[in-house]
């Protein structure tokens, strides 16, 4: 697989946190509309890879090109703006603002982009409908179940119509049934908007929702398509 036509390409990423080497020459690429699972044992650097790809953490070395633009040349504000408008994020937990209602949480990225409150909440509600959680718009995250909360988080990640969705163990805190439903809704929604999904997971059944997988071990990535 050549990186050409790829939406997001990373080569030779290196990142150390103090004495620990999180990434040691990792590569990655993803096409629009593709779902790529990033697997690997805990501490292998898969989350760090996601953080680097999403421009949350600048790598120590290596290049990341998003849509032809080199991320290393962007400053923090530009990368933040990119994350706001082009990327969406779902984490394992702790990402919903507890004091905002669910619909306000979903509307938050739109509002950060300057959309008016009314319009943002209207769009948010339609996304919540797609994720089958439109009934809990007025509740606070603390008052809904884990599965509902995670769907709210997915709705929030998708509400801006991102071109890349980054999901870090999105079902980590959910049981099988809820986890699978969230994965179905997530991948369906992403496919319908032709968004690429970077799916970090250690669960094979979650990874099975991907088109392709990458394994990260000791900071090195391995594209499993090329093995065969």
């Amino acid at each position: 697989m050549t990186p050409s036509g790829s939406l997001l390409v990373a080569e030779g990423l290196r990142k150390t946190y103090g004495p620990t080497t999180a990434l040691d020459g990792a590569d990655f690429s993803i096409h629009p509309g593709e779902v790529v699972a990033v697997m690997g044992p805990s501490g292998s650097g898969k989350s760090t890879l996601l953080h680097c790809l999403a421009g949350i953490v600048p790598p120590d070395a290596g290049s990341i090109r998003y849509d032809g633009r080199e991320m290393a040349t962007m400053n923090d504000a530009q990368r933040s703006a990119l994350r706001r408008s082009e990327f969406g994020f779902v984490f394992q937990f702790g990402q919903l603002v507890p004091e905002l209602t669910c619909v306000e949480n979903v509307a938050l990225p739109l509002r950060l982009n300057g959309t008016s409150r009314k319009a943002a909440e209207r769009t948010a509600l339609s996304w919540m409908e797609r994720l089958e959680v439109d009934g809990i718009g007025k509740k606070r995250p603390g008052e809904v179940s884990g599965g509902q909360g995670q769907r709210v988080a997915v709705a929030r990640a998708l509400v801006t119509g991102p071109r890349v969705l980054f999901a870090d163990e999105p079902t980590g805190a959910l049981d099988s049934l809820n986890g699978e439903r969230v994965m179905e809704l997530l991948t369906d929604a992403a496919r319908s908007t032709n968004a690429a999904v970077v799916l970090v997971t250690h669960e094979a059944r979650v990874a099975a929702y991907s088109d392709r997988e990458i394994v990260v071990r000791d900071g090195k990535s391995r594209d499993m398509e090329r093995v065969v």
């Binding site: 504000a77 990119l82 706001r84 984490f91 990225p109 929030r156």
Partner: peptide, 9 residues
């Protein structure tokens, strides 16, 4: 951190 990740200034 999550808020910053999805681009909050």
């Amino acid at each position: 951190s999550a808020l910053v990740a999805f681009g909050t200034r």
